[in-house]
Write a protein that binds this DNA or RNA. Structure first.
Length: 951
RNA sequence: AGGACUAUAGCUCAGUUGGUUAGAGCGCUACCUUGACAUGGUAGAGGUCCCCAGUUCGAAUCUGGGUAGUCCUACCA
């Protein structure tokens, strides 16, 4: 082994070996355990959130593989409709100045495929670098022909079951991207806006009870008034009783529109009169449907004012009778310009009553970033209510469990109130909807024109055209758990690996993806008995990885960290280029530059994959976000180095030596028995924690055991045996064997979290450890063996540690050089103490660096000494020539004071009659025992202090 | 408006069913190149467990009410 730990050298080699040998593929033996990777955008790159989730998933799958399961970790990428199309459109614009329309649909999608080929390898390269043991043989892309076929099949299935329909509905329309989007893709933002109070004159000479010849409506969207088709007031509102059923004359347009009563109108809000614009507001749309109001669309798909409105009846059919006039001065005006123009016109007419500042939340498209417009368009919808029902039951009855559990509430509240899901997108990149239309617009759903003709018995003279729209990306990723396994065919893989076991993903896509996968799977995927199949049994929801100051990582903030840079390191120049190059908002570049230069003055050094993974694992407590901490990464890099060096020590002392592989007598030292016993606890705990998804506790347990117990104590305790010329062959054999076998077990225990380092070390010690195999990843996960528990040895070592720490404490406090060998005395020891001393003299001498140890019998005179207590036994370091009188007194004072506090606290408890009466006896006894110990210790220290003071 | 989560050492975080001397890493102080490791070792300092009230013999932990922060959902004429 090299003298220094160099992660990059070992990491790339091992991954290649594993992959070349097909170790990631299902073994075909044992109980099945499967997971799907949340498919990342094919053209994207992995960020810290991916690295976090992938670490958890890889830890789980490696653990399960080592448990002997038949594991499948399904890998693949998503075509990510809008996101990818946008990237390529932007690229096209930058390079040639063309839009997608200049190229046309086919040529443009070819461009996207080109881009996918060019950049698509990036993300899979990164996965390999992270060590993900995914089954590459089974890699899928959502636009693969087989997957496309599954998507079409799913659509047709749902359509034939009456769960997909097409209709003219009000949907969220992105006027920049020119597509409908789902409710979930809309982000609300708080903005300061205005509310305008507009006067609408009453028609036919009608007046209100108050004698007014007009009413006043309040609106935040005056430009939609061309589409007003009613005014609503509350039926209970005393102010407007007499005008219900009468009309107003819509200013600027002249259309007479009715005043209706509807519960939507709130007497408390605004003026009590609401203008109803069914084609441009979701609430008004509902009112319109309820009251059979016509709808007038006044906006183009760009959200500009039309030249003439489009009239529809409330059922969506065309209404060519209604007056859809829009004054010429507003034609083709952009919506916000039109807003100002309409207000100006009202003002000119004297119809503008007042303007108020108004805080409101406005919907923005999460991709395009512009204000979303409710738009009346023909779209495809999935009946989400029906699809949701079984999934709610599956979570209620525990078939699907969320970790942490509180996400179930979030899931329920959304699912129980779910709205129909708009699944069509007016994009070019995606799964084209398998629907055909004849000249009359009648719909035929089938996966090809040929199939449509057969299915619907259409004669050849009927011309069919295919729907131009594509499906929402989440429609296809909703099929991910089973379409990747060959659905709709009933394949063996589907039989074996579905439902999958655990889904690991972020809370931000519970609705987008997790819920959709559940709906799709439970409707489409049935087991042999016809029972709906859940897609997964457990959903492990991870938090977000944030930056050091708790901010979300984002390109615009310039605080994004690339996991690969943590692994391989990056120079400041490259990091700056990465963060400020190719920015959407170049004005931020300077700020980002400064911040980056300050935080990473020397760039980022390489830490290796294992260190990154261990850090993420250690931070993975459930139900909480992670604030990334570079220091923590450094600490775990040091941990890797620690393991490396410990392994070097083991190798030096065992390679080519007799470790008992070939038989021979074995004598285990106390330390050997102790570390073996401790190891059993660790094995139990680690497995338990991983089973409970507490990877952080598993990591913490391993860290503590390896560093503090194995390296800190055991390796030191092995030296007095291995370097002792008087030790017997069987004693040395026993210690060598323990040294290397414990390390071998530690490597297997740690392998799921840190695959590379553990493989490298395992390979170089497996011979001495007496094990064989091609790779640690195919070895079994260690299991505790209770026969190896040795509580007596554990107690003995605790005693030993107490004595050694006691001496070291005196050394430290008294500033005695570690090089100075001390002669100590033991006073007031019991028979057990004497036994332990005699058994472990060698260990004590070496670890506390002593010259000799003198056992004082009763009546022996002790010299003036600094004292430490191990139970009742006194460890004495003679002061003569070493220790200053005042220093020892002040050290004793400190001890006495500390004990004072403890004694006071416990005395308080014990003098409380209620405590003594009510607390369990064991608890009371424990307190009594404690206080007795404290008191006797304190007594000793006080006596000692008096003696020293008397000098 | 409704809901969820979070608040523990200077920083980042653990703390399982109420009983611990409240822990870890980093940082800090002092000392130490001892034959695995200075990416190290030894010893040490550092806490009003956000606040108030309650339940209890006993609360970081349970209940109620605040405060601060994060997030989700809905609405806003």
């Amino acid at each position: 082994m090299d003298k220094t730990y160099q992660p990059s050298a070992i990491e790339t080699n091992w991954y290649k070996t594993w992959e070349d040998n097909n170790y990631f593929a299902p073994s075909g033996e044992g109980e099945a355990y499967s997971m799907v990777i949340p498919p990342p955008n094919v053209t994207g790159s992995l960020h810290m959130g991916h690295a976090f989730q992938h670490t958890i998933m890889d830890t789980l799958i490696r653990y399960q593989r080592m448990q002997g399961k038949n594991t499948l970790w399904q890998v693949g990428t998503d075509h990510a409709g809008i996101a990818t199309q946008m990237i390529v459109e932007r690229k096209l614009a930058a390079e040639t100045g063309q839009t997608r329309h200049d190229l046309g649909r086919e040529a443009f999608t070819d461009k996207i495929w080109e881009w996918k080929e060019e950049s698509g390898g990036n993300i899979t390269r990164q996965m390999r670098r992270l060590g993900n043991s995914v089954d590459w043989n089974n890699e899928r892309f959502t636009m693969d022909p087989e997957f496309q076929a599954s998507v079409e099949e799913a659509f047709i299935n749902l359509y034939d079951d009456g769960l997909i329909y097409r209709g003219k509905r009000l949907v969220n329309w992105d006027p920049k991207l020119h597509t409908a989007i789902s409710d979930l893709e809309v982000e609300s933002k708080e903005v300061k806006g205005k509310m305008w109070y507009l006067r609408y004159p009453l028609a036919d000479g009608v007046t209100t009870d108050a004698g007014e010849d007009h009413i006043i409506v309040a609106t935040t969207r005056p430009e939609t008034m061309f589409g007003d088709t009613a005014i609503a007031v509350n039926a209970e509102d005393p102010r407007f009783q007499s005008i219900i059923g009468k009309f107003v004359e819509l200013p600027l347009v002249g259309r007479k529109i009715p005043i209706i009563a509807d519960e939507h109108a709130d007497m408390e809000k605004g003026t009590g009169c609401v203008k109803i614009t069914p084609a441009h507001d979701f609430n008004d749309y509902e009112v319109g449907k309820r009251r059979q109001l016509p709808m007038i669309n006044v906006l183009t798909l760009n959200a500009d004012i039309r030249q003439v409105g489009q009239g529809f009846n409330s059922d969506g059919s065309v209404n060519d009778e209604i007056n859809c006039y829009i004054p010429e001065q507003f034609h083709n005006m952009e919506r916000f310009a039109a807003r100002r123009a309409v207000v100006a016109e009202f003002e000119a007419l004297g119809f503008l009553v007042k303007i108020e500042e108004n805080n409101m939340t406005i919907p923005y498209g999460d991709r395009g970033g512009v204000v979303i417009e409710p738009m009346l368009t023909d779209q495809w919808f999935a009946n989400a209510k029906v699809l949701a029902q079984p999934t709610i039951e599956a979570v209620e009855n525990g078939d699907i469990k969320f970790v942490p559990k509180q996400y179930e509430n979030m899931f329920f509240s959304w699912m129980r109130d779910i709205q129909d899901w708009c699944i069509s997108r007016q994009l070019w990149w995606g799964h084209r909807i398998p629907a055909f239309y004849d000249a009359q617009g009648k719909v035929y759903v089938a996966n090809s024109e040929q199939a449509a003709r057969e299915k619907y018995n259409l004669t050849a003279d009927i011309e069919l055209t295919r729907d131009n729209d594509v499906l929402d990306t989440w429609f296809s990723s909703g099929l991910w758990s089973f379409a990747t396994l060959g659905w709709p065919e009933q394949t063996d893989d589907l039989e074996t690996f579905h439902p999958t076991d655990t889904l690991v993903t972020g809370f931000d896509i519970i609705f987008f993806w997790v819920a959709r996968m559940m709906m799709m799977s439970m409707h489409l995927c049935k087991d042999r008995a016809g029972k709906p199949q859940i897609p997964f049994k457990n959903v492990y929801i991870t938090g977000l990885v944030r930056d050091e100051s708790g901010e979300k990582m984002s390109k615009t903030k310039g605080n994004v960290l690339d996991p690969l840079d943590m692994i391989d390191g990056i120079s400041l120049e490259d990091l700056l280029e990465k963060r400020t190059g190719n920015m959407m908002q170049p004005q931020m570049a300077e700020k980002i530059r400064k911040r980056t230069e300050k935080e990473y003055a020397d760039g980022i050094p390489a830490h290796g994959t294992d260190a990154l993974r261990f850090t993420l694992a250690a931070l993975a407590s459930t139900g909480r976000d992670i604030n990334w901490d570079m220091k923590r990464l450094e600490g775990y890099r040091n941990f890797c180095n620690k393991i490396w060096n410990a392994a070097r020590y083991v190798e030096m002392n065992t390679a080519g030596e007799d470790c008992g592989q070939n038989g021979g007598d074995i004598t285990l030292s106390l330390a050997d028995r102790w570390i073996n016993s401790k190891l059993q606890h660790i094995q139990t705990q680690t497995a338990k924690y991983i089973d409970e998804y507490r990877i952080d506790l598993a990591a913490q347990t391993l860290y503590d055991f390896i560093w503090n117990e194995y390296c800190g104590w055991y390796l030191e305790l092995s030296k007095p045996v291995l370097w002792n010329e008087e030790a017997s062959a069987s004693e040395k054999r026993g210690t060598r064997q323990t040294l290397v076998r414990v390390l071998e077990v530690i490597m297997r225990l740690t392998h799921p979290i840190m695959p590379f380092l553990t493989e490298e070390i395992w390979q170089s010690i497996k011979g001495q450890a007496g094990v064989s195999g091609d790779s640690i990843m195919l070895q079994s996960y260690p299991k505790a063996n209770n026969d190896k528990l040795d509580l007596a040895a554990e107690a003995d070592i605790e005693w030993l540690k107490g004595v050694i720490t006691g001496v070291r404490n005196i050394r430290g406090e008294m500033a005695i050089s570690p090089a100075k060998e001390l002669s100590i005395l033991i006073n007031n020891g019991s028979d057990t103490d004497l036994q332990r001393l005699n058994d472990n003299r060698n260990f004590l001498m070496k670890l506390a660096s002593l010259a000799d140890i003198t056992w004082l019998s009763a009546g022996d005179e002790a010299p003036m000494s600094a004292t430490q207590l191990v139970g009742k036994m006194e460890v004495l370091v003679p002061m003569a020539g070493l220790i200053d009188k005042d220093a020892e007194i002040s050290r004793l004072n400190k001890e006495i004071e500390k004990l004072d506090k403890d004694i006071g606290r416990i005395e308080g408890k014990l003098s409380n009659q209620k405590f003594v009466a009510n607390a369990p006896e064991a608890v009371v006894a424990k307190e009594r025992e404690k206080i007795a110990g404290f008191k006797s210790s304190q007594q000793k220290f006080v006596e000692q202090r008096a003696k020293i003071a008397a000098l």
